[in-house]
Design a protein around this nucleic acid. Sequence first.
DNA 1: TAAACATATAAGCAGATTATTATATAAGTG
DNA 2: CACTTATATAATAATCTGCTTATATGTTTA
Lengths: 114, 114
Amino acid sequence: MQKSLMDLTNASMILKLLGDKTRLTMVKILESHDCCVCEFVEIFKTSQPAISQHLRKLKDLGIVKEARRGQWIIYSLNKESEYYPMVKEILQHLPNQDFKLQALEEQGLRISCE
Amino acid sequence: MQKSLMDLTNASMILKLLGDKTRLTMVKILESHDCCVCEFVEIFKTSQPAISQHLRKLKDLGIVKEARRGQWIIYSLNKESEYYPMVKEILQHLPNQDFKLQALEEQGLRISCE
DNA sequence: TAAACATATAAGCAGATTATTATATAAGTG
DNA sequence: CACTTATATAATAATCTGCTTATATGTTTA
């Protein structure tokens, strides 16, 4: 069972990054659905800059990537990241968060980004 | 492939705990060998209180456990922890750190705790 | 092109984190 | 029992983190 090995410096950086409940939840959500910033703002009931800053950190280490679509910027998991294998395994220990996006949909708030 | 599920609050706490290079290395070392505090002090070239404090945090969340043996306190991974399954998987992505203990042995510093 | 919307960046602050120094506790030894 | 060794705890200082407010950038639309 050989797994992709990463050095301890990088590994601890990634774990610290995921060691924040907001960011960890973001990444878990992105595991099943791409999302734009405004959706995260709704989900986490926090300010847009706070969300942007979390996403920036995730992007800086290559965990997520962004793609502009009109005025929205859609974030997704970067499955090409050298860290993705470990991240994916971690996510498998976490409960699905789809209900959070479903709640948005019921409020009609998800449509805004489609 | 159902894994042990943990809630996001606890998961982020564990990841934050492991998101420190010293602690992550400690846990990786403990994966293959029990260790006492004085060995960690040698390995990390840092102060004894700093090591004690890292171990305290790991112990507080149940990642490691301690056992007194004479004047030494031997730390080991707590495999009964509800978090152990995830921790174990994370460790599998990290390079073996046995060489650190071997270096101690060559200096005759490991014997002190045996 | 001005206004509205979505997002990013910058600056500043409060709370958390980690290391250090000093001291306390506990066990072993002469 | 004094002394040494191993470890823990407390207090403190320096650094880091994450949030807020304010503002800038970029896109769409009237």
